[in-house]
């Protein structure tokens, strides 16, 4: 509820933001290439006080777990930091933050990717699903159920990334044997070594045909 309030407040602050509209009018969206003419125009529109802000922030329209967000972000903000620090969706974990561990795996337009190596601004218009968006309300996703049943984790830190990757692994058609599952799940590292149980969980969901 607190999260929702924060989000609503943020979006309210941004709604009717004419600076965003102004930037949108440019055929090439840019944070910097405000020509002198454009700057004067901005000034005429009483946008000058917000001009410096516009230089540092980019508009970002992004759907996360079915909810539309209209935000402004610094270009160097990663998708992972946007999710965790800004939107308080802390289910997606920051492990190595360098694309080596898979803990930050999310689905971008239905495809699994590492959110730590994605700039948020590169995902304008994208639909993101995080571990928070996987369950149907209180009803867990079959993969979440299977991880619990098969004890597919110990400390749990890699688990959200493992589960997001596992769901995609089945959707991609890469879960047809234990060998194939291990190969196509190799981008998700588990330091506790729960691999055997993770493979069993994925096999069961695949064989059950629930997803």
């Amino acid at each position: 509820m607190i999260e929702n309030n924060t989000r609503e407040k943020e979006e309210k602050e941004l709604s009717g933001n004419s600076r965003r509209d102004f930037l949108k009018k440019s055929s090439v969206i840019t944070a910097i290439a405000l020509t002198p003419v454009a700057a004067v125009k901005a000034s005429d529109l009483k946008l000058d006080e917000k001009l410096s802000d516009a230089i540092e922030q980019m508009p970002l329209s992004i759907e996360i777990n079915g909810q539309q967000h209209n935000l402004k972000v610094e270009p160097r903000t990663t998708l992972l930091d946007l999710l965790r620090e800004r939107l308080k969706l802390t289910g997606t974990k920051k492990g190595c933050d360098q694309g080596q561990c898979g803990a930050c795996t999310v689905h971008i337009d239905g495809v699994r990717a590492l959110s730590c190596l994605q700039l948020a601004v590169m995902n304008d218009g994208a639909k993101i699903t995080t571990i928070e968006g996987l369950s149907d309300g209180d009803k867990l996703h079959p993969m979440q159920e299977a991880f619990i049943k098969h004890d597919g984790f110990q400390c749990g830190y890699c688990t959200p990334g493992q589960i997001m990757s596992a769901v995609a692994c089945i959707h991609e058609g890469h879960a047809n044997s234990e060998t194939e599952i291990r190969e196509f799940m190799s981008g998700n590292i588990c330091r506790c070594g729960a691999y055997a149980n993770i493979v069993n969980a994925i096999k069961e969901v695949k064989e059950g045909g629930a997803i």
Partner: peptide, 15 residues
């Protein structure tokens, strides 16, 4: 990460 400018282009010529 250093700060940088971000520009999205829609044509090879612009890139």
């Amino acid at each position: 990460m250093n700060n940088f400018q971000y520009k999205r282009v829609s044509s090879p010529a612009a890139a």
